[in-house]
Design a protein around this nucleic acid. Structure first.
Length: 426
RNA sequence: GUGGCCGUAGCUCAACGGUAGAGUCCCAGAUUGUGAUUCUGGUUGUUGUGGGUUCGAAUCCCAUCGGCCACCCCA
């Protein structure tokens, strides 16, 4: 810790003991995306700052105080490490005309950067994966995307993640609601805390989102955005609710649910757990029909979500659902004249046959080699000593079951080892 | 960014103003070619870092870095 070189605050190393859980998790993500027909997209970690300013919104917390923005000293460009990936995905879709032949389903995963004060479940470099449906206008894709989340939770064996849903309508509808909301808030201004007062004019919807019980109480009878939605917006919302009900995905409508990014309209939702303290939102998203135009593309309806990998992994670990790391099939112990060469050939042959084999390296006594064989978790130890080299044999010892060791012939290695491996699991 | 709690061996922790310790891990031996159990022995630290107070600081004070919790924000 006191070492002069340490990782940047809030940016963590994922060490091998933990990394295997990441791999398993990422594999489940890939499979789930594949099964739902979503195709992978990979965009740069670095974008022009203007992209995020335009997409996320100038007055959001992310843009105002959380972005890693700097000038490229070599050419003077203003660059930003991506704080989220929807803006980049839409930028790429516009730049490469991805929706030219019709709507597309995309997914991504990777690191994101926000300069926040680190906490459990909140890091400066954190990882998200997300899915986006670009070019789809109806609530059917909204439902599909949400159903995919539910499928993923099931696949991971996670329960206790609840879905909150809301519709924030169109910008016109929000504008007329906003007028009345601000009027209302002005009558209660004495009951508002400093944060709420500041937001009253910058982003009054967020005031309704306050955790402060005094503010909550004061805004209990505030005008509800839902009541300002027109026929079309309501129809979209009803359509989504019907589909979710049909899919058997439970949800609760939270009329105060809003998003911290400006590009959303109509559908917004969050998947929330109570197991992670203040960082309970595990996945969030919504519809962003205006974003394409906002960053210079043709009007294109779109909807998507992003999920926090660290948070979901924390839940996965707490639930004891992370699969144990795969142990190697064999550990090759060797000592004596000609044994190292023989062991290497044995390992090569078995690996070519698809087995996972660790060949001992670094010398040491037979005893210490056997200890390492045990510590590796391998099911079988293969012993190559001078006797075996001379006889064209190997000694095969089961490390996880009580059975006597056996000699196998090197010219029948793959078959004999395959049989032993089957036996070793019985 | 604000407030609070906390940093001691690779890991989990003790010592709370008077010589820095235990368990675990690791290494070696008992078993001169055989692990996991048992027994014996051994290594391990600028007490996060930098200052200060004191005869003496892991312990008290300040700063700084890092972690955790809440606010805030959000995935």
């Amino acid at each position: 810790m006191g070492s002069p070189l340490q990782a940047i605050r809030g940016m963590n190393d994922v060490l091998p003991d933990e990394a295997h859980g990441w791999l398993a998790f990422e594999e489940i993500i890939r499979n789930t995306m594949y099964r739902h027909g979503y195709r992978n997209i990979r965009t740069p970690l670095l974008e022009h700052t203007g992209l995020f300013r335009r997409a996320i919104g100038e007055v959001t917390d992310i843009v105002e105080k959380e972005m890693y923005t700097f000038t490229d000293e070599l050419n003077g460009e203003q660059l930003t490490l991506r704080p989220e990936a929807t803006a980049s995905t839409v930028r790429a879709a516009i730049e490469h005309s991805l929706t030219y032949n019709g709507p597309v389903r995309l997914w991504y995963a990777g690191p994101m950067y926000r300069h926040e004060r680190p906490q459990k479940g909140r890091y400066r470099q954190f990882h998200q994966f997300g899915a986006e449906g670009l070019g789809f206008a109806g609530p059917d894709v909204d439902a599909e995307l949400i159903v995919m989340c539910a499928a993923l939770w099931k696949e991971l064996g996670l329960d206790g993640i609840r879905l909150e849903l809301n519709s924030i309508g169109s910008s016109e509808e929000r504008a007329s609601h906003r007028v009345e909301l601000v009027e209302f808030l002005e009558t209660r201004v004495d009951a508002l805390d400093a944060d709420a007062k500041r937001r009253m004019h910058t982003n009054p919807l967020r005031v309704l989102d306050s955790k402060n019980p005094v503010v909550k109480e004061a805004t209990r009878n505030a005008p509800v955005l839902m009541n300002f939605l027109g026929e079309q917006s309501l129809a979209h919302f009803d359509g989504l609710k019907k589909l979710l009900a049909a899919a058997g995905v439970p949800f609760s409508v939270n009329p105060r649910l809003v998003r911290g990014l400006d590009y959303y309209n109509l559908t917004v939702f969050e998947w929330i757990t109570d197991q992670l303290g203040a960082q309970g939102t595990v996945c969030a998203g919504g519809r962003y029909d205006g974003l394409f135009e906002q960053i210079g593309g043709k009007p294109t309806p779109a909807v998507g979500w992003a999920a926090g990998i660290e948070r979901l992994l924390a839940l996965w670990q707490a639930a004891g659902r992370v699969p144990a790391p795969k142990a190697p099939d064999a550990y090759v112990v060797h000592q004596g004249e000609g044994a190292a060469e023989c062991a290497l050939l044995v390992a090569q042959v078995l690996r070519a046959a698809g087995h996972s084999v660790i060949q001992h390296a670094g010398g040491g006594s037979f005893k210490s080699q056997m200890k390492k064989a045990d510590g590796s978790g391998a099911r079988i130890a293969l012993i190559v000593g001078e006797d075996e080299v001379r006889a064209g044999e190997l000694t095969l010892k089961f490390l996880r079951r009580d059975a006597s060791q056996q000699k196998i012939r090197r010219d029948a290695l793959v078959a004999a080892f395959g049989n032993a491996l089957l036996e070793s699991t019985q």
